[in-house]
């Protein structure tokens, strides 16, 4: 979606400010939110792309002004309320009011090392050959879905070159809509900076994006 998360090429946010010796967390609640959100993955109530969509579909003003763990908190809350796992009243009162729903699994402390080591690979076996090969010229499609996509605005309807075939991966656009993984070929596509940004960009500079086959068309 054309939401607050699609930031590539926006202006006016000021300089990048890095904090020397930055801690992982700036408050205890940030650590709890990170740990809870990761642990909740075991419940199996949403997939990676639904989780991303829950974050990027926050109102843009909220997305841009909230800290990252606030965004995680709001998105996870939204997903759980949508699925009937908890209610707003339970959150504001801090106590259980409704019965829990059945979830896939509760992550135990002894399962943590294995769960983190396993992660969530998204490569899937392929039946078809990739449509494109390194060196092929492609044009990205021009789409503006209100649902999830990983084709950023700045790279739509642009001509680039296939740099590498990464593999056959889950397609986020359908997976986020609950329409299944529909795995497809993923490519590294290289664009000249000038193709994306015009003459202001330095000749010789490039930007690469990892894009799925449905985003790409052969150029005539």
């Amino acid at each position: 979606m054309n939401g607050g998360a699609d930031l590539g090429g926006m202006m006016g946010f000021g300089p990048v400010v890095s904090e020397p010796d930055e801690p992982n967390f700036h408050a205890e609640w940030e650590a709890r939110v990170m740990g809870m959100v990761v642990a909740l993955g075991a419940a199996g109530q949403w997939n990676l792309d639904q989780s991303r969509f829950a974050r990027e579909s926050l109102p843009p003003a909220d997305y841009l002004s909230n800290s990252y763990y606030e965004i995680w908190l709001k998105a996870a809350t939204k997903l759980m309320v949508e699925r009937g796992m908890l209610t707003e009243a339970e959150l504001s009162e801090g106590r259980v009011i409704t019965d829990p729903i059945a979830v896939k699994r509760t992550l135990s402390p002894t399962d943590v090392p294995a769960a983190l080591a396993k992660g969530g690979p998204v490569d899937r076996p392929a039946q078809m050959q990739p449509a494109f090969s390194p060196g092929d010229s492609v044009r990205t499609i021009n789409i503006h879905p209100e649902s999830h996509t990983r084709l950023p605005r700045y790279a739509r309807d642009k001509v680039g070159v296939i740099d590498r075939v990464h593999g056959h991966h889950v397609f986020p656009d359908t997976n986020a809509r609950g329409e299944g993984e529909q795995p497809t070929w993923l490519y590294k596509v290289s664009f000249t900076a000038q193709a994306l940004w015009g003459d202001r960009a330095a000749p010789g500079d490039t930007v690469t994006l990892d894009l799925w086959e449905p985003y790409l068309r052969p150029t005539p």
Partner: peptide
């Protein structure tokens, strides 16, 4: 020359 890698996938 700079190549920027936008991590749009996994």
């Amino acid at each position: 020359a700079i190549t920027v890698h936008d991590s749009t996938a996994e």
